[in-house]
Amino acid sequence: MCIDCGCAEHHHHSDEHHHDHTHDQRPSPGGRKLSIGENLLAKNDRLAAANRARFAAQRLFVLNLVSSPGSGKTSILERTLRDLQDEINFAVLEGDQQTSNDADRIAATGIPAHQINTGAGCHLDAHMVGHGADHFDLATTDILMIENVGNLVCPAAFDLGEDHKVAVLSVTEGEDKPLKYPQMFQAANLLLINKIDLLPYVPFDIETCKTFARQVNPAVEILEVSCLKGDGMDAWYQWLRTGLAKKQQP
């Protein structure tokens, strides 16, 4: 159940959940105080920095796709891979609690894909991604796409060593998602507003959505796409090419 453990570390957590609050009742006389000041995400941040250095050494452009479940992350990837696979070498890490359905969908496009199952976990962390990347030949890969667990809360806090977080928001969700889940939209460098082919049928005000996104992240880039119909996908591809070119500059 403890999915954030380090590799070879031993964690023997009891499966029982005691709720007797004994930890509140013990006085602590005679204890020695130690000043610590260590960030709780320090371990993940260290592993993320190691991933980032490893990816940089291979001139790999790495994206961390985040969104709520059902916004179209996997469908965007499928179309992107099909359209660009003659031009760019991709590899894809898929994060889900269970099943290899998404990795199977990506593998069907012919692109190397590896599924990470987080089990009880609600997000990918740098440790999982470091091991996940071992499944690819990074030297021949240009772009590593990491599709995070569909969740607008937890993945925001965990740096994976990516160049950018890309948030996906579909027009069948509320336009106020950026205000409701500010950490995530603040952490993203690019926001893809997906399923714009459905705009005539849903009460989604795209300009209001952009305003909300900029309230939590004034610098965020925003692209409108429909991965089903293909609208706007060229701008997304151009964004990928620009990012990759920057990364591969000698």
Binding site: G31, R32, K33, L40
Partner: peptide, 10 residues
């Protein structure tokens, strides 16, 4: 902030 600030040990 998200930090372990202090410990009391025995």
């Amino acid at each position: 902030e998200l930090r372990v600030k202090e410990l009391e040990i025995d």
